[in-house]
Amino acid sequence: MTQHLPPPPPIDFSGDALFLDFDGTLVELADRPDGVVVGEQLIAMLHALSDRLDGRLALVSGRDIATLDGFGMDGLAIAGSHGAEWRLADGTMSETARPPGMDDARRQFERFAETHDGVLFEDKPLGAALHYRLSPEWGEECVALAENLARSHGFHVQHGHEMVELRRAGVDKGVAISDILERAPFAGHRPVFLGDDVTDEAGFEQVTRSGGHGVLIGTMRATAANFRLPDVNSVNEWLDRSLRN
């Protein structure tokens, strides 16, 4: 494992296309999915960055587009639900259908959360998740349930920060970034992707294949990223500093 990665260079507003994870990258992780704090300053900065980049900024998140819009991100390009849906700033959209069997998974996840203190169920338009950050002792059982349902219905098991999610197989953040890079205004520009979680590795790999680079956020680990920033505060400082240059 690489023991050290340098901080990223400033954003090149003439040549870069910027892709940003949300939880753990732009905002601090929270015990509950609805507990994140999104300040007005962050919202304003993201819109200002998008303007400077002529629209070449996209959020790339496990959250669905509607939820991110509710945080004040409407008007920005967004790849949501781990790449199963995306929308460009001009309104162009792509969305896969809700996978068959997801209703069964939702019912079983919801029942599990109701009977295990501290486990939180998160329903998503194109997936379902269990969060066990409040009660990590249930983590193994959450993962086992998810893996059993994945085998039954052909889902992909997505692991995250003390959570596990089921989603459609064959889509991920890398696939979404690749699709967006084929379209204006992103086409022909160098992709830069910031993310903190193992769910972001597919994005790091894709931007590298496309001639760009990934930026790992948080503690050093094995990664396909080329650069690193230590925490959410440093991400916001880097974005603000780039914007002011």
Rank of each mutant, 00 (worst) to 15 (best):
G72Q: 09
Q108V: 12
E147S: 11
M163D: 03
A222H: 05
R151Y: 12
F186T: 00
G91F: 09
G55Q: 07
P33E: 03
F112P: 01
E122A: 14
I78S: 03
A146V: 07
D16M: 05
G91V: 10
D69V: 00
D196M: 08
M163K: 04
R56I: 03
L130M: 10
A77G: 10
V38I: 15
A113H: 06
R107W: 15
M1I: 14
P99V: 00
E201Y: 09
G170N: 13
L76K: 03
F193S: 02
F227N: 10
T92C: 07
T67P: 05
E114I: 09
W86M: 03
S14I: 09
I65A: 06
P100L: 12
L59S: 01
A66C: 12
R168D: 10
G195Y: 08
V38R: 02
L5E: 06
R87Q: 13
L68I: 00
E28P: 07
I78G: 04
L145E: 05
R168Q: 14
S210C: 12
E95H: 04
S152A: 15
A30F: 11
R221E: 06
V60E: 05
H116D: 06
C142P: 00
H161A: 14
E95Q: 02
S50K: 02
D104M: 15
L42I: 11
D12M: 07
P6R: 13
P136D: 12
A89M: 08
A225C: 13
W138F: 14
A184I: 02
R133Y: 14
A58P: 03
A17S: 10
T25Y: 06
D123Y: 15
A17K: 01
K173S: 01
M220I: 15
F193T: 00
I11N: 02
E85T: 07
S135H: 06
G72L: 13
R209E: 09
L5G: 05
I217D: 04
Y132L: 06
V171Q: 03
L57F: 13
P191F: 02
F186I: 11
S210L: 11
T2M: 13
T223W: 01
H82K: 09
F19E: 01
V171D: 02
H4R: 08
Q3H: 12
D69A: 10
A225K: 04
V198S: 13
Y132W: 09
N245V: 00
F109Y: 09
V192G: 02
E237V: 15
D12Q: 12
I180T: 03
G160T: 01
R63L: 08
Q108E: 14
M93P: 00
F121E: 00
G101F: 11
I177N: 04
T2E: 00
V192W: 00
A128R: 05
V36T: 08
S135Q: 05
G195M: 13
L130A: 05
L18F: 03
R63V: 01
R52K: 12
P125H: 13
A44L: 10
P8S: 06
L53E: 00
G80Q: 05
L149A: 14
N236Q: 15
P191H: 11
D196Y: 07
G195S: 13
G75F: 06
Q206R: 11
V143P: 01
L49R: 02
G174E: 01
G80D: 04
E114G: 15
A105G: 11
P10M: 11
D23W: 06
N233F: 14
E182Q: 11
E162V: 02
Q41V: 08
H153Y: 15
I180P: 00
I43L: 12
E85I: 04
T199G: 12
P185M: 07
L181T: 06
L243D: 12
